[in-house]
Nucleic acid binder design. Structure first.
Lengths: 125, 125
DNA sequence: ATTAGTGCACTAGAAATATAGTGCACTAAT
DNA sequence: ATTAGTGCACTATATTTCTAGTGCACTAAT
């Protein structure tokens, strides 16, 4: 019932990231309606006010748009979604490589570790 | 003065992670003394109580050990530090690949993105 | 014995996050 | 006009994190 969240980071940010991932993945398409604040709150097991903050944040980063009385929708700007995909990819990769560099790991070690995880279902196409 | 922290995660956890990275990287060696709680607090610009929590956590995960009246030291167990290196590598890689999979990125896309960041100083040795 | 340096325990408060609950304005459908 | 569904604003409270301050016990050096 409660979409599990880690307690060390604000729930609303985790939910923003989760929705962004769903968009990038294609589970949510441009223009698609998001659940109402009340419904989403029930679905993920948080307070409606928290969802309100999530949707406000999604609107701030121009990933969603709100039509009062109708609901909140994924932006219809498909270019924006393509940029979101590039932005997320870039930020996750940069953060990961930064962490690895801070710990002194070499690219060879990283790639070797990738192969150990490979069996767990990362697509190759 | 204040070692910059992101506001969305507890400072004490960020400091734990930072110290673990320094150990894995080799900037801190087995048995080496950490700064006193008071000194570390001044160095990173936080309250001594926060450092107290950091050192307690480092001791809980058996990465540091405390000698009352003397200070807190990196564990002298070098095997433990080797395991720490493997643990951190594994968890960071697993989290990263999990995020990538959630967003539907393929291994090829990841590797391509790596090459774009490669110029920014990741070692190849 | 005294002193300095250390970890540690404790209380209190500030700040941010999350929850709880209510109400209002807007939109669409009837 | 009425109704249902929606976003949005508002107040209040709980929880967690962080800060602030004090004091004590232990260790080593003098």
């Amino acid at each position: 019932m409660a979409g599990d969240f880690i307690p060390t980071q604000p729930i609303y940010l985790q939910l923003v990231q989760r929705i962004c991932k769903q968009i990038v993945r294609g589970d949510l398409s441009a223009g698609e309606k998001l659940p109402s604040q009340r419904d989403m709150a029930i679905q993920v097991g948080v307070n409606p006010n928290t969802v309100q903050r999530v949707y406000t944040e999604l609107e701030r980063i121009t990933v969603a748009e709100t039509r009062r009385g109708q609901g909140t929708f994924v932006t219809r700007d498909e270019d924006r979604l393509l940029r979101l995909r590039e932005e997320l990819m870039g930020s996750y990769v940069a953060a990961f490589l930064g962490d690895m560099r801070e710990m002194g790991f070499t690219l060879e070690e990283i790639l070797r570790s990738f192969k150990e995880c490979e069996t767990l279902g990362l697509s190759h196409e």
